[in-house]
Computed example of a mutant assay.
Amino acid sequence: MKDHPLSPEQIAHLLDTELVGRLATNGTDGCPYVTPVHFAVMDGTIYIHGLAAGEKLHNIRRDPMVGFEVDKMHSLIHHPDLPCDTNTAYESVIIRGRASVVQDTATVTRVLDAIVAKYTPQHAGKGYPPNMLKMTAVIAVDATSCTGKFYPA
């Protein structure tokens, strides 16, 4: 981390362009529960959408402390004659924070609009059927720490 930190601008770019993040919650059995998620960043907050029921929501309601990770692997770096001399060129962001389930309908709609714009821009500006909104939860992750690092190619 000390040798190859990402700048705040590089962190923002990675969060804006990568399509999959991983949300880690604390399971009731004491084990971490990690879920791949779609997400968008708005006003410095990570927003995640998903079903309105399930283990990650149960875990967040019980213990709001979470981890969130995004990475991009660029390439493998290896010595042609030494199998143990292998590394990876990558960028990653690790966030620790507090999660909450968003209750405000206007915020939920703004978040869904941002997620649609990121993942399926051809559907931007279309409405959301009420039954789909009932089945959808939006999670906000407010970062308490954020670090980014890279390893050059």
Rank of each mutant, 00 (worst) to 15 (best):
1 M>F: 06
1 M>A: 11
1 M>I: 06
3 D>H: 03
5 P>R: 11
5 P>T: 08
6 L>A: 06
6 L>P: 07
9 E>D: 07
9 E>W: 00
11 I>C: 08
13 H>Y: 00
16 D>E: 15
19 L>F: 03
20 V>N: 08
20 V>S: 05
23 L>N: 13
23 L>V: 11
24 A>S: 14
24 A>W: 00
26 N>F: 02
28 T>A: 14
33 Y>D: 07
35 T>I: 10
36 P>E: 07
37 V>E: 13
38 H>T: 12
39 F>S: 05
42 M>I: 14
47 Y>T: 15
49 H>T: 00
49 H>Y: 02
50 G>D: 07
50 G>C: 10
53 A>P: 03
54 G>M: 03
57 L>C: 14
59 N>C: 04
59 N>Q: 02
59 N>Y: 01
59 N>D: 15
59 N>I: 01
63 D>E: 15
64 P>A: 09
67 G>M: 05
67 G>N: 04
67 G>Q: 02
69 E>R: 01
69 E>N: 12
71 D>N: 12
71 D>W: 03
74 H>P: 04
74 H>R: 10
74 H>W: 04
75 S>N: 10
76 L>R: 15
78 H>M: 14
79 H>K: 13
80 P>W: 01
80 P>F: 00
83 P>H: 04
84 C>A: 12
84 C>L: 11
85 D>V: 04
87 N>A: 13
88 T>Q: 11
89 A>V: 06
92 S>T: 15
93 V>S: 06
93 V>M: 02
93 V>C: 02
95 I>H: 04
96 R>L: 12
97 G>T: 12
99 A>W: 04
101 V>D: 11
101 V>P: 13
102 V>H: 09
102 V>M: 10
102 V>D: 09
103 Q>K: 14
105 T>Y: 00
105 T>V: 13
105 T>E: 13
105 T>H: 08
105 T>P: 10
105 T>D: 13
105 T>M: 08
106 A>C: 09
106 A>F: 01
107 T>P: 06
109 T>E: 12
110 R>A: 15
113 D>E: 15
119 Y>W: 10
119 Y>L: 15
120 T>P: 13
121 P>W: 01
122 Q>P: 01
123 H>Y: 11
123 H>T: 03
124 A>N: 11
124 A>K: 11
128 Y>Q: 12
128 Y>C: 14
128 Y>G: 11
130 P>L: 00
131 N>E: 12
132 M>R: 10
134 K>L: 07
134 K>Y: 00
135 M>Y: 00
139 I>Q: 07
140 A>R: 08
141 V>D: 03
143 A>I: 08
144 T>N: 02
144 T>H: 03
144 T>Q: 07
147 T>K: 06
149 K>A: 02
150 F>T: 13
151 Y>D: 05
151 Y>T: 05
153 A>I: 09
153 A>M: 10
